[in-house]
């Protein structure tokens, strides 16, 4: 029987890299989509607003696992074969976009209405109002919850194993199946998750403190 040694540990570390990569991709694409949906959700154009809130409602109301199954098994049943990494990145990006859209919509809405009025009165366009007045303030407000969500995302990426993708969690399980040294293996897996998430949690808490201490600069 195989024992848990350096090669196995290295395999787990490499898979942690995949977890990080997947998190980064999902967060990056999800941010772009989420930002767009947040703005659409607040648009004056009614169908844009409805489209965005419909999208957010649907995605938030179904398990992300469903999205993953749809994009992997569902599409393959229709003849479109996505590689696991692509299906996983796409599904997680969609999941991230819906949640970030809501976090950011809330942040934008918490900028006082008078700031919009002051900006409009100074002859700014709507785009200029967002760019120079609203978003800089909304970003500050949104940083703590956004980083908090990122911590959840790191851990939630572990669901991608259901489409055969080997992430940190799946790597731990594979090594365990071969060596049966569950305690050592999952201690290592847990330690790696902790090493990723703990600094992020601290960052989130730090940002929250900084934001509360000085609202404006």
């Amino acid at each position: 029987m195989q024992t848990f040694g350096w090669p196995e540990a290295l395999f787990i570390f490499r898979s942690a890299g995949w977890t990080l990569a997947l998190t980064a991709i999902a967060f990056f694409i999800g941010s772009i989509l989420g930002g767009a949906f947040a703005i659409m959700r607040l648009s004056r154009v009614r169908w844009l607003r409805r489209f965005a809130s419909g999208y957010i409602l649907v995605i938030q109301s179904i398990p992300v696992l469903m999205v993953l199954f749809m994009s992997y098994y569902g599409l393959s049943a229709l003849g479109i074969e996505l590689p696991p990494f692509l299906a996983a990145s796409a599904s997680l990006s969609i999941y991230v976009s819906a949640y970030l859209a809501e976090i950011w919509r809330g942040s934008i809405e918490s900028v006082p209405r008078q700031q919009w009025e002051a900006s409009a009165s100074l002859a700014h366009t709507t785009a200029q109002t967002y760019r120079y007045v609203i978003l800089p303030q909304a970003v500050r407000i949104s940083l703590p919850p956004t980083v908090g969500f990122l911590v959840q995302l790191v851990k939630n990426t572990s669901i991608v194993q259901v489409v055969g993708f080997v992430d940190l969690m799946r790597a731990g399980m594979l090594v365990n199946n071969a060596t049966y040294q569950a305690f050592q293996i999952f201690t290592l897996v847990g330690a790696i998750y902790f090493a990723i998430c703990f600094p992020l949690s601290r960052l989130s808490r730090h940002l929250e403190k900084v934001m509360n201490a000085s609202r404006s600069h």
Binding site: Q114, S119, A123, P136, Q137
Partner: peptide
């Protein structure tokens, strides 16, 4: 009309009760 309204607003200043400076 947003474009024409902006032209008007370039010539009309307003000061509010709550100052409304941009805090950032």
């Amino acid at each position: 009309d947003p474009t024409k309204l902006r032209e008007l607003r370039k010539d009309v200043g307003i000061v509010f009760q709550s100052y409304n400076l941009f805090p950032h």
